[in-house]
Amino acid sequence: MNDPRFKIANREALIGVGLALFNFIWWYAFAYGLGSQPVADYDFIFGMPAWFFYSCLIGSVIMIILVVFMVKFFFKEVPLNEKGDESS
């Protein structure tokens, strides 16, 4: 069970949990932080209410950038077959 590939797999799963937590906090904080004030006080960005713009639009863009960054710099390619043999 001490396959070195599992260490990589465990770390990548933890990155997934971290990203989802960050995703949730960003989404929640902007939506309910900015969105809870009276509508009369809303700011608008590109025609959208600010809470929506930051939470939904910018939030998605940031998640896409973060996923690209994590995959490029922290994810390692490993063989998936038994004994790391590449031929199936």
Binding site: G16, A20, N23
Partner: peptide, 17 residues
């Protein structure tokens, strides 16, 4: 937008293991 998470979460969690 809670579904954005499915885009990376499933593959990262099940992942290589």
């Amino acid at each position: 937008m809670s579904q954005v998470a499915t885009g990376y979460f499933v593959l990262m969690i099940l992942g290589k293991k």
